[in-house]
Design a protein around this nucleic acid. Structure first.
Lengths: 266, 266
DNA sequence: GGGTATTTGTCCGTATGTATT
DNA sequence: AAATACATACGGACAAATACC
């Protein structure tokens, strides 16, 4: 016996899933049935399904059963350029739900939650201000087609308010865009940005908002975007968290064909 | 009791780790000691440590004990630009190991493993050739400072060989770089590339090479880089797999300050 | 709403195997 | 070889979530 029994059972079930014997969304046999089928104890069957869950192939629902996971249609964000999704702020109109046609996707964003905070170490470092100094924090949760998609928090130096950009501390959307607003009020123009991309396990609130399984299987992208003004000074830090199971990114460098068919690997 | 016992125990141990009572690398008390301490059964203690392992906070080693994980110093790759690490091919000279000084990091790469393969769906789509047509595959495993870092496979259309780029099927490094070689032999010049970034769970060989825990906790970046020539035709597809626990990425857009202090969030 | 059957979740005790020191 | 520590496996009991009548 090279492999332990629970692993062999997991491999067997994996083969059934990958072979198509078990469709995505379909329910597996119950633990009792699997116990009798494999001649193992229920706990060993549970070890096998736990391993499959760690592989991201099944999920268990208390009171219901064990199901083959349905892959979420990933949303692709192009980091080198602007997103092309129509954005809807405020309350969702339920009557309009389900009316999105074709491949067009609807992005819904909560109104910004504005707070004055002390800069933690990472925020201070990236904004090049002292750790602990005051910053404006604008937080939004965003969904696409009803699926929780990302949580975004933008940080601005507190000095922007004193210099006249007082709309930053109002808890509503700045329709023309904050970058244009800062240009009009403070003369700050964004000339470039740097994205820092990491992956980590989701914390509690994130797992809750994104509906992630509690076993820590799905991690999240954390993207730190530092925007620089014409003097090379950081003018905004945007931290966005995306679950890795429903998000992918594109980076275009140099002369490349337009996005379209043939850019998606799967 | 809002939470089950194993979860409360896990939270308690987590607080000890985050509070600094348990240092990274330090051994936890054994399962038997924890069982007596918390008044639970050994199986419940094991459920708690399994949860901590899923959170990426501890790792268990058979015959040794349970240890607080040591965070790996992440390696940062700038996607918009060329890497700046010195590359060493072939066998490693052990006598030189440990002699790297300062912040300089040593990249070691295996000799390319060259194969002729049929293009799978994703390779065919990104290279814009028919699925199942022949491609040259050049695979390398790479380490930084002795730590397994990435697995990279480049795919070229088979036609390149017939047109004279026959060094592509030799299993050694092309010192001047394959891009320059293709320019010299075929007149193909890379004018840009597109990176497609996804995250998925590691498969068996990947988990083995990268030394990842078998519980599926650590996932991997999979970056598909399609290089385009002056006619806008894909000339190479490079698929690189990086463990997410030791890799981060940077994307620079527009006019940004040089990399250096203040670009790292943590 | 209530009650019941089904299914997974939690917890226990025990025994044995395997890896490491 | 022996001791230690985690890994695997069993069987049992009860709890909690869900679905259905």
């Amino acid at each position: 016996m090279a492999n332990p029994m629970y692993r062999q059972i997991a491999e067997d079930l994996r083969a059934q899933i990958e072979g198509g014997d078990l469709e995505p969304g379909q329910q597996l046999r119950t633990e009792i049935e699997l116990r009798d089928h494999y001649g193992a104890s229920r706990n060993t069957i549970r070890d096998a399904t736990k391993l499959l869950a760690a592989w991201g192939m099944v999920e268990t629902r208390p009171g219901q059963g064990t199901f083959v996971v349905r892959k979420i249609e990933p949303y692709v964000t192009t980091l080198t350029g602007s997103p092309k999704v129509p954005i809807l702020y405020g309350e969702v109109d339920d009557s309009a739900a389900g009316a999105t046609s074709g491949t067009e996707r609807l992005l819904y964003s909560t109104d910004p939650q504005v707070e004055i905070q002390k800069a933690v170490a990472s925020v201070g470092r990236l904004l090049q201000i002292a750790e602990g100094s005051q910053v404006i924090s604008r937080h939004q949760k965003r969904s696409i087609d009803g699926t929780p998609w990302s949580m975004q928090t933008s940080f601005y130096p507190m000095g922007f308010i004193l210099k006249g950009a007082d709309r930053l501390i109002q808890a509503d959307d700045i329709a023309i865009g904050t970058m244009k607003y800062l240009e009009q009020t403070l003369g700050l123009k964004q000339v470039g940005y740097r994205d820092w991309i990491t992956v980590r396990t989701a914390d509690g609130p994130e797992a809750s908002f994104f509906n992630l399984p509690p076993d820590g299987r799905v991690s999240v992208f954390e993207v730190f975007r530092t925007a620089y003004d014409q003097t090379g000074t950081p003018m905004r830090l945007t931290v966005t968290v995306y679950p890795t199971d429903r998000n992918e990114f594109i980076v275009n460098v140099g002369d490349v064909p337009k996005d379209g068919d043939g850019v998606v690997p799967a």
